[in-house]
Design a protein around this nucleic acid. Structure first.
Length: 890
RNA sequence: GGGCGCAUAGCUCAGCUGGUUCAGAGCACCUGCCUUACAAGCAGGGGGUCACAGGUUCGAAUCCUGUUGUGCCCACCA
């Protein structure tokens, strides 16, 4: 019959329409009279490739942006990539290593040239992949956090923050990544239980000048004993009062160190004695400052021991090798008292997974106290809404306890810190070299200073110190409209920003709530005095069936592009959405996208049905009630859908559409209007059905853009530019409750007949005779033709039969229905069934009566509720009466 | 150690402001169908004391308290 394929082939269709949309420039947005609706993409790492998290994330954004377009907004989705300093530099270093080049062999400029070359070659692959998902980004606006203008924006902000006194240089203990050889912010350190691997060693230190007297300390890091500069004890610990003023001797190394007393030490923990290593532990560092202890830094930047250890055989060994070797030596010499296995958390670098080493160094810090104040308020008072709202607590907790942000990184790939140093360590912060020179000359009164006397900071900025400007700078906020004097952006000078900003919503994973979201809010308020976005939609994390996070190392993540190939982008989008309410993790299972693909196929076959029908002119009066039902259902679904999307309940929205289209439209409606085999459909009915189908496709388009466009064009020949992409939301019709009820009644009537057949194992091919007895038969009358042809009813009689003994009797609502299938009924079994039902309704009636006779209920409950209860009672009584009649008839 | 969540069918989860859209969906399972759009389908079916114990209320899956289990975030306990 039909020349259309039996199954839907997504690949051709998807490429075709994406190209079409691109060619027609549908994704482009320029400011106009319409209200704006902007989303800035969370920029993926420039060298990244698409993973399941991106799929979820970007599907949600695309749904929102397409919906906004359909509602008449000027929707703008800005794409782009992040330079991702550590991650990218690590990749480039790895790439060079494969070529046999070490980073240290190259100059900074040579290295950057290599990095840019790499970025040009592989960067942005991820954006190409997003196109396959159907992402309707305005590609002309693609931004990169190291674009020249963006680079300048970051520098401007650095200079400004320094001017405002928020930035300072500090000698602090920071988290050191020994692989990337850079500082990390607290947020970049992931603490994980080390598990069985972790050992706690008890080591004894001799007391200086005493015969065979010892103190025992416990440590998980015996290798740092080399750098011990004190033993600490609680001042009120009775056991050790006699040690005040004494010295201890570091085992093996034989260095004398003071025994200090400080309340920081817990008496009850371990032996009550603590070794103090100011250079390699944050707390010890504080203790060291307080007690003016010597600081011995025994590690090189790569985590190997340096000459400070004092024993040649340890110099140059990795810290973990040192640990092993030293423990052996301690044991051999009798200093190791015991070794226990404990659980203990070890911090690892988010990027390189190496164990983080606390390290003392000069770094740049951003004072967060003041600058973050307003950012807490706007979330507290819901100016910025977090979804789900439970994250408000998490956010508050972080903001209240916010710590200064270490923004310098010892890398080359990134925004180089615009600070220039003199030989003697004094420095100036400036936009460029020339300005720096002038500043230095003026500030330090060194008129004859030259450029060669200045040396720029070698470090670059943390990636997030650039991406926190994203919602501003993608619209060029810092380019022309930034006023250096006030440190603010003048919206009048940047119409683009004024038009799109604040953006509508940001969609991202909760793990970067602090890294990125909080900081964007801070920067937004600091430079525009406005919030950068109104809503933060936090997605869940995509996990595998066992609940494990998807990761490359576990190899448990399917390749999104393979999925798209197999199930279609629409199918994948459906699968991701259907199971992911905001904030809930999704346990990924192929079954999800399989359902999506099946849904595509269902739509496809609905189209095939309509395309394959013979058409005759005219219309069917008998379908009037069916149409009324469908009109109301569509109106109902449209309203409901709008509500769900407004509340960002996308998974419910997509399920609503699935249920409506599959069950109501396909299973019921299409079956009802489908002519019997060999007959033609009337042109009016077909046209009407096309309209319903079109409306459903418009509603579904944001979720499954490709197949809906294809169907749109297959239903009719379309004029150039008549694409579903541009269709506006259907005008909301009115919901006629009676029409809906009539449809429901018809459905349950047909179900009742099917049911009787299935139970009696009577084939649907066998015609049956049906009697209906009730007060008002008008609904059945109006559906009479539909019922007779669709339920294969040979006679539909609107009265009780003379003799119902060999008929199946059942209730549709309260209406009595008798089905004569020409069989002999097992009267006893039928009686039993009826008696059970009667028993149930008797109980039911008693409970409702009890409720209604309770005065407190009648008085306190909502009148509507009481009315409903009364209706329930009336229906119950009628049902009971009818059932008893059935029983009597038997 | 502090904070925040979660616990509903075999599995994954919906169930918004307590009251027939309150016990639901998808998948899985069982029965019957290759019916002329679709076997990636159609029709029917079984299956849940809504973790446990109290409380509030005329009424609780829904609100409160506690218990247990579980997940996440934060934190310097050697």
């Amino acid at each position: 019959m039909s020349e259309i394929n039996k199954t839907y082939d997504s690949t051709i269709v998807e490429n075709k329409w994406y190209q079409h949309w691109l060619e027609r420039g549908y994704f482009k947005s320029i400011p106009d009279d319409r209200p704006a609706y902007a989303i800035t993409i969370p920029p993926p790492n420039v060298t990244g490739i698409l993973h399941m998290g991106h799929m979820l994330n970007n599907t949600i954004q695309d749904v929102l942006i397409r919906t906004a377009r359909q509602k008449g907004f000027n929707a703008c989705w800005v794409p782009g990539t992040d330079h991702a300093s550590i991650a990218t530099e690590a990749k480039v270093v790895g790439m060079l290593r494969e070529k046999g080049i070490k980073k240290s062999d190259l100059s900074r400029d040579e290295f950057l040239a290599q990095a840019f070359e790499w970025k040009e070659k592989y960067g942005g692959i991820i954006l190409e992949q997003l196109k396959q998902l159907g992402a309707s980004c305005d590609w002309d606006r693609t931004s990169f956090t190291m674009d020249p203008n963006y680079y300048q924006a970051v520098i401007k902000v650095f200079v400004d923050l320094h001017k405002k006194g928020y930035l300072y240089r500090g000698f602090r203990m920071i988290n050191w990544d020994v692989v990337a050889k850079t500082a990390l912010s607290n947020e970049e350190v992931i603490y994980k239980e080390a598990g069985e691997q972790s050992q706690m060693y008890s080591v004894k230190y001799a007391i200086d000048g005493a015969e065979d007297e010892w103190v025992t300390i416990a440590t998980t890091r015996p290798e740092t004993i080399f750098a011990d500069t004190a033993i600490a004890i609680h001042p009120e610990d009775e056991r050790y009062q006699h040690l005040k003023g004494k010295m201890a001797i570091v085992p093996i190394i034989n260095r004398k160190i003071p025994i200090i007393f400080d309340e920081y030490v817990e008496k009850d923990f371990g032996t009550g004695c603590l070794k103090v290593t100011p250079a390699h532990d944050p707390n010890d560092y504080d203790l060291g400052l307080k007690h003016e202890l010597e600081i011995i830094d025994m590690f090189n930047d790569d985590g190997t021991a340096n000459e400070k250890v004092g024993i040649d055989s340890y110099i140059g060994l990795d810290r973990f090798v040192v640990r092993k070797k030293f423990v052996k030596e301690l044991e051999a010499e009798g200093f190791l008292v015991k070794t226990e296995t404990i659980t203990n958390k070890v911090g690892r670098s988010e990027r390189t997974n190496s164990v983080v080493e606390p390290k003392l160094s000069f770094q740049w810090f951003l004072d967060m106290q003041q600058i973050s104040k307003r950012a807490l308020d706007v979330v507290e008072n819901d100016e910025v809404a977090l979804l789900p709202s439970k994250y408000k607590n998490t956010y508050r907790h972080w903001m209240v306890n916010v710590r200064d942000w270490c923004v310098s990184r010892q890398l080359w790939w990134g925004h180089r810190i615009p600070a220039w140093y003199l030989e003697d360590g004094r420095f100036v912060v400036a936009h460029d070299e020339q300005e720096a020179l002038k500043k230095a000359q003026d500030e330090f009164g060194l008129a004859d200073l030259t450029l060669s006397d200045l040396h720029q900071d070698e470090d670059v900025l943390d990636t997030w110190a650039s991406s926190w400007l994203w919602p501003i700078e993608v619209f060029g906020g810092f380019d022309e409209a930034y006023d250096e004097q006030t440190g603010k952006i003048d919206f009048d000078k940047c119409p683009e920003l004024r038009y799109y900003y604040p953006t509508e919503v940001i969609v991202t994973a909760p793990e970067i709530l602090f890294f990125w979201i909080a900081r964007m809010i801070i920067a937004g308020l600091e430079y525009t005095d406005e919030i950068p976005f109104k809503t933060v939609y936090l997605t869940g994390i995509v996990r595998d069936k066992q609940g494990r996070k998807m990761s490359k190392s576990l190899g448990n993540s399917p390749d999104p592009l393979d999925l798209i190939k197999e199930y279609g982008a629409d199918g994948v989008r459906f699968g991701m959405l259907a199971s992911a309410p905001a904030g809930n993790d999704i346990l990924y299972d192929d079954k999800l996208v399989e359902q999506g693909r099946n849904f595509s196929n269902k739509l496809w076959n609905a189209l095939r049905l309509l395309k394959g029908l013979e058409v005759k002119s005219g219309h069917d009066e008998s379908l009037k009630t069916v149409f009324e039902w469908m009109d109301s259902r569509i109106a109902q679904v449209t309203i409901e859908l709008e509500r769900l999307v407004d509340e960002y309940r996308l998974s419910e929205a997509v399920r609503l559409l699935y249920g409506f289209i599959w069950d109501d439209f396909c299973s019921w409606y299409l079956e009802w209007i489908k002519p019997t085999y060999g007959e033609a459909i009337t042109s009016d009915t077909l046209e009407r059905t096309h309209q319903y189908f079109e409306q459903a496709m418009v509603l579904l388009h944001p979720y499954m853009p490709f197949i809906t466009e294809e169907i749109w064009h297959s239903i009719h020949e379309r004029k150039e530019g008549d694409d579903i992409f541009l269709q506006q939301y259907p005008v909301k019709g009115t919901v006629n409750i009676n029409a809906i009820k009539a449809g429901d009644q018809l459905k349950s009537f047909i179900t009742t007949i099917r049911n009787a057949r299935a139970k009696a194992l009577v084939s649907p091919k066998e015609a049956v005779k049906v009697y209906v007895s009730c007060k008002d038969t008008s609904v059945y009358q109006s559906f009479k033709e539909t019922i007779m042809s669709k339920a294969n009813v040979s006679e539909l009689i609107f009265e009780s039969p003379q003799d119902s003994k060999n008929m199946i009797s059942d209730l549709v609502g309260v209406d009595k229905v008798y089905i004569d299938m020409g069989l002999t009924i097992d009267v006893e079994a039928e009686k039993l069934k009826l008696e059970e039902e009667i028993k149930y309704y008797k109980g039911f009636i008693i409970s409702v009566e009890k409720k209604l006779s309770n005065e407190r209920f009648v008085q306190n409950a909502n009148p509507e509720v009481v009315e409903k209860e009364r209706q329930k009672l009336a229906d119950g009584i009628e049902k009971l009466k009818n059932l008893e009649e059935y029983l009597l008839a038997l």
